[in-house]
Design a protein around this nucleic acid. Structure first.
Lengths: 348, 348
DNA sequence: TCCCGGATCTAAACCGGTTTGACCAATTGG
DNA sequence: CCAATTGGTCAAACCGGTTTAGATCCGGGA
């Protein structure tokens, strides 16, 4: 392991000059810089990160703590996000410090990372309206950017998708198809995105004077089994829905299973629209029938949040780092005209 | 940010004593230690990681570089592994540095992490027989543990599952059911686990004198679409298989789709056995029909490899850190007796 | 009484970088 | 021709811990 002093000595220079030359300071002679760079190459000099960080106070590390549910762990979609994030940071000198923590231990983990001062910034995901994690980071003055929003117009840097608009559009499409009994299988109740989606859905239902009995709106984790369970229950109801809106293609898969068991043909007897974060290993267009979705690959958020993080670290003010992207509605075979038997709206 | 000197001054002690007291050295008086601990608590003292690391030479960081395919990214199963790993390290002082890199850039990323000396050790996954990443880490003397094996008896610390035994057992079950034309949809060819699985499969086929034409063994990425494609091609063959063995439940999903399109009923006209790493958000037992699998949750590897990593860092010799676990064969509805029409073996 | 050794604690060096302030030589300007 | 700049370099301080070598205090044995 060559040190900067060894390199300096080897070159007949002082460590100070070597440091400056390597870090691109303007006050070193062009010939000297060249000599230093060559010497560094020759001796395989690699600056010791820890020393560098101690001296500069910057760690070159960005932390990210994912939320895990205690039963099912982490949503598999987030791997794609993490992947994109990591790739986006690859060119810079930044590395990712990753924790996965159950909701109950989120604060503990944030506390730990924050207080040890080992990261320059944090990326946070799936915020709730008054998220204590955000409050902690703000209080500690740790730069952070958020994937999603806890409220409509938060005062932090965030990237979010237009969940409300997406679910409004999806609801509208179903209503145009003649559906009046549209059920919603949503994500966990406290999550910002779940609230936004429910709002978009309810707004359009209200607009058309269509009531929604509470038993046809479900909140829960977004996996196949929860989709199946909720759908099976709702489909057993006398006034069963003719269409489902759900938050994840895995939930949609569960709904399809329930539909199959109930003898309903998806796309004819029952319509399904799902939000699609895009799981490359299981594409919604390959479902049978292909799934109508509001589509926004979670992967796309990676480079955006990486860029925001770097901008934040460079001092860009928060209000220039707030972005909400529109979501595409992609119509495929899982949606169709409402069946005859479900013509009436739910009673109020 | 309180420093150790401030704390020492506050207590009327020297930094040396404070350091010793906090790190549990025996030569500090019991009363002093108590005083130091209380003082640290009161002043919210948190040692600066970078300083600590510079002084000790240990980083408290373990690196992990996941493999990503350029088209589909990272297998969603690995999120579950990462999650378990992170949870397992949570109690210790170790944090995870995570990179995700396409295969083409794996070496570059390893080089980077290795040469900057920012991690104490590395965890590596999905090794190939002569894996250059392993060679690099060994040459640089960076402690590492491996998830999987490149060869049968490698000279590094690893945790693997008995892929060969699992696929042998699965093949045997199908043969007992009367199947003679069993196709294999395997993972990417170079991977250690793919080779092991193919070996287990071929051994049993050979044992029973059942030939396997090359076109009924496919190697490729393990997602729904690849399963569908390969299965659709094979099912279109005049001598189509009566059973499939595959490497991932997502592939199995694709096979099921192809079977559906071919008008074949899974569990009757066509049997499927998949290896199941267990994706908690999409369980094999919830497939229609429930999937027969060789099951070993990838999640279980997390704590095992975490413990191995720590043991390795503590100096445990490599040969005490080699472990292969048996795999369960769980028979469900996707397997059944061979149909009448597929009675004859493939011709040689 | 004196010396010795163990128990505690401290001063200073060290880890390997960066950064401040000073210095020197070569230009430039008056 | 001398003073003021400027470009390039260096010595030393600094970041915040750990660790080595020594100092001090104490009780006990000779």
């Amino acid at each position: 392991m060559t040190t900067i002093r060894q390199l300096a000595e080897h070159l007949g220079l002082s460590p100070a000059t070597v440091s400056r030359a390597l870090n691109g300071f303007p006050e070193v002679g062009v010939a000297t810089r060249q000599r230093v760079l060559e010497g560094a190459e020759r001796l395989h000099y690699r600056p010791n990160m820890h020393a560098k960080r101690l001296a500069t106070g910057k760690s070159g590390l960005v932390g990210m703590i994912f939320r895990a549910s205690s039963e099912r762990g982490v949503d598999p979609h987030v791997m794609d996000f993490l992947s994109a994030l990591s790739l986006a940071f690859a060119d810079s000198e930044i590395d990712l410090l990753v924790h996965i923590a159950p909701d109950a231990q989120q604060m503990e983990h944030h506390e730990r990372i924050a207080s040890r001062g080992q990261v320059d910034g944090m990326i946070l995901s799936a915020p709730e309206p008054d998220d204590p994690r955000i409050e902690l980071l703000a209080r500690r003055n740790i730069p952070f950017v958020v994937h999603g929003r806890g409220t409509d117009a938060p005062d932090y840097a965030y990237y979010d998708i237009d969940n409300e608009g997406a679910f409004a559009a999806a609801t509208r499409l179903l209503i145009q198809f003649g559906h009046k009994r549209i059920a919603l299988l949503n994500g966990p109740q406290p999550m910002g995105y779940a609230r936004q989606r429910e709002r978009g859905y309810r707004a359009v239902m209200d607009e058309h004077g269509l009531p929604v009995p509470p038993r046809f709106v479900a909140n829960g984790e977004m996996h196949e089994e929860s989709g199946y369970r909720a759908a099976a229950t709702m489909l057993a109801d006398r006034a069963r829905p003719t269409a489902f809106l759900c938050s994840s293609t895995l939930q949609a898969l569960g709904i399809m299973r329930a539909a199959g068991e109930a003898g309903l043909k998806v796309g004819e007897d029952l319509s399904i629209i799902s939000h699609d974060d895009v799981l490359p290993h299981l594409l919604a267009e390959n479902f049978a029938p292909p799934l109508t979705v509001t589509r926004q690959p979670i992967r796309d958020a990676g480079p955006i949040l990486a860029a925001m993080m770097m901008a934040r670290l460079a001092g860009t003010p928060v209000r220039e780092l707030q972005r909400t992207d529109k979501v595409d509605l992609i119509v495929r075979g899982s949606t169709g005209p409402a069946p005859k038997w479900g013509g009436e709206a739910w009673s109020r």
